[in-house]
Design a protein around this nucleic acid. Structure first.
Lengths: 121, 121
DNA sequence: ATCCAGGTATGATGTAAATCGTACCTCTGG
DNA sequence: CCAGAGGTACGATTTACATCATACCTGGAT
């Protein structure tokens, strides 16, 4: 079902996995940030200000990717993250709006610059 | 925040708890059944055909109640369950439609009679 | 009064999830 | 070429969750 990089096809996305992914405040925050940015925004994993270690960050992005919420592109160094907006809207209309409606997933400013801080922690 | 029976107020509902509750296929099924029935449908906990023990069933209904998805009324014996449809729609518009859009949470017929079977298991 | 059906409460148990440290890989910039 | 930044992989730990069995409570039917 998933492609080589672990992205499920739209028709294989599961609501259970989506909900499980969005149940975590950190992951929900990532989606919120991507969702409230302009079209096709692309950012690196470390640019979300997640208060966890690198290893844990990778873990969270994997969950998001495997649920189908984001599409990741390997740049060798760095990895770009993009919300799968249209696909999600087609398969689960209203999902993204809902995540946005949930209010800040309490961690930081959000739409404003979640600047990439050094790898503290 | 919650009232005496453990129901959160609309304004206290949290998207995280909602998503966590709906991540489980059994609980999602309960919500689907309630959602696709007519207005203000009320059913007992054992009428959903959940393939788990009584204790586990109680557990799942507690999660649903504390997330704000259902409202339970104690009847002494038995306990009626009702989807908090309008309140949910006001707070998280599109949520219910989304759960329905997710397709059958693979367990049984669904909208058709999930008849109350004897307490096997 | 009894019994039973529907639920809750309380542990116990097994599995899954979040977290981290460390080691490693891949590009880019001196 | 070497150092460093961005990530992944692996193993360990700790916590949360789904599950059950058992004991108990409440109201309706017999």
């Amino acid at each position: 079902m998933p492609d080589a990089e672990g992205h499920p096809f739209v028709e294989d996305m599961e609501l259970g996995a989506i909900f499980a992914a969005l149940a975590d405040p950190l992951r929900r925050r990532v989606v919120q940030i991507l969702a409230c940015e302009a079209q096709d925004d692309t950012r690196l994993c470390n640019s979300f200000g997640l208060p966890v270690s690198k290893a844990t960050r990778t873990h969270h992005f994997r969950i998001l990717r495997e649920a189908g919420l984001i599409r990741q592109t390997d740049l060798g160094n760095g990895r770009s993250n993009r919300l799968r907006r249209e696909e999600l809207e087609a398969r689960f209309p209203g999902l993204i709006a809902l995540v946005l409606a949930g209010g800040e997933a309490a961690v930081a400013p959000l739409c404003v610059s979640a600047s990439a801080e050094p790898d503290t922690r």
